[in-house]
Amino acid sequence: MPRLGWRWLLALSSLPSSLLLIFYRVTPESPRYLCLKGRTTEAIDVLEKIARMNGTELPCGTLVSDHQIELQEKSNDPSEDANLLSPRTENATHKGIDSNIGGISSLFVLLSPKLVRSTLLLWVVFFGNAFSYYGLVLLTSELNNGNSKCMPTKVQSQESQDVNYRNVFIASFAEFPGLLIAAATVDRLGRKLSMSAMFFLCCFCLLPLVFHQPEGLTTGLLFGARICITATFTIVYIYAPEIYPTSVRTTGVGIASSVGRIGGMLCPLVAVGLVHGCHQTASIFLFEIVIFFSGICVVLFPFETKGRKLSDTVSSPKHTVESA
């Protein structure tokens, strides 16, 4: 950054992400999605490939979705095979699937009585996560710029290059243990408990920064806060797809992520604007409120998804314990 400038930094940072394009063509489609779309032959092909890679074989039987099973149970026709669909039932299946897809109709499904609580809480958590995560990234450089006290804007702009990159690197490195903590706790403690605990612990780490602290303590507190917010951001991307059925899963997660981006756009006004305006206390307090409220919303999520079976449609049972 000091030698080449931000443009070269941005260009070099984008190179690792471009490597992901290589894997796009070899990434298999979701079998659940293919099954729900009625493309069971393609779903079986994907499952057979997975089985071969794991050195096993698929169990015997016919591949059907939860939605197809519900339609068969409702038909109450003993002449129909339990594992096969008649043309009438298959047409009804596709009609039911089509009613669950599409932009506007999917949004209405997300705000339906069965999903509205989860959807609204998830929007708040995504907003709080993005607001806090990107805000802490900016605070890391703002609070490690070599100025322990607030200065007038003109003088501060002249000293804007005096960023302690060693401390910025230390605080940024916190994302690595944050990912490890998320991986270690998400299946042991559950999604809700691990996410809420990290939110509240992040509040604890940020609280002393309401007042100006020594450089070393500031770096340590930011290190702890970024560990926590990285863990919550990782866990929410695991939890979010699990609370939605397959028919609206990508729409639900996509809209929630978009709401989070709004938080990411607003955070510079706090992380940079308030700190530059000599309002570090107000800035930290605002982060505390957003993070704490996000943690409360996690506690209010209607159910824990750890060990629960994914559903294909809104009417499918969400609370069936996954079989061993």
Rank of each mutant, 00 (worst) to 15 (best):
Trp6Met: 11
Arg7Tyr: 11
Ala11Tyr: 05
Ser13His: 08
Ser13Ala: 14
Ser13Ile: 11
Ser14Arg: 11
Pro16Thr: 13
Pro16Ile: 15
Ser17Cys: 09
Ser18Leu: 14
Phe23Ser: 15
Arg25Cys: 09
Val26Pro: 04
Glu29Thr: 11
Leu36Ser: 05
Ala51Pro: 10
Thr56Asp: 09
Pro59Gly: 07
Gly61Thr: 09
Thr62Ile: 15
Val64Cys: 09
Ser65Leu: 08
Asp66Gln: 13
Asp66Met: 08
Ile69Phe: 08
Glu70Lys: 12
Leu71Cys: 06
Gln72Ile: 12
Glu73Met: 11
Glu73Asn: 12
Ser75Ile: 04
Pro78His: 08
Asp81Glu: 09
Asn91Leu: 15
Thr93Ser: 12
Thr93Met: 14
Gly96His: 12
Asn100Glu: 15
Ser105Cys: 10
Leu111Glu: 04
Val116Thr: 07
Val125Trp: 01
Ala130Cys: 14
Leu138Gln: 10
Asn144Pro: 07
Gly146Arg: 06
Asn147Trp: 00
Cys150Asn: 06
Met151Gly: 06
Pro152Glu: 12
Thr153Cys: 07
Val155Gln: 13
Ser157Thr: 11
Gln158Cys: 12
Glu159Lys: 09
Ser160Ile: 13
Ser160Asp: 10
Ser160Ala: 15
Val163Glu: 07
Asn164Val: 06
Asn164Gln: 10
Arg166Leu: 13
Arg166Gln: 13
Asn167Cys: 08
Phe169Met: 14
Glu175Arg: 02
Gly178Asn: 07
Ile181Ser: 00
Ala184Cys: 07
Ala184Thr: 06
Thr185Phe: 06
Thr185Glu: 00
Leu189Trp: 02
Lys192Pro: 01
Leu193Gly: 01
Phe199Met: 04
Cys203His: 05
Cys205Leu: 09
Leu207Gln: 10
Pro208His: 05
Leu209Lys: 03
Gln213Trp: 02
Gln213Glu: 04
Gly216Val: 15
Gly224Thr: 05
Cys228Asp: 04
Thr230Leu: 05
Ala231Cys: 08
Thr232Cys: 06
Ile235Val: 03
Ala240Gly: 04
Ser247Met: 06
Gly252Asp: 01
Val253Tyr: 02
Gly254Asn: 04
Gly254Cys: 03
Ala256Ser: 07
Gly263Phe: 03
Cys267Arg: 03
Val270Ala: 02
Leu274Asp: 03
Leu274Asn: 03
Gly277Glu: 02
Cys278Leu: 08
His279Val: 10
Phe287Ala: 02
Ile296Val: 14
Cys297Asn: 04
Val299His: 04
Val299Ile: 12
Phe301Lys: 01
Pro302Asp: 00
Glu304His: 01
Glu304Ala: 02
Asp312Lys: 00
Val314Asp: 00
Val314Trp: 07
Thr320Pro: 01
Thr320Asn: 08
Thr320Asp: 10
Ser323Gln: 14
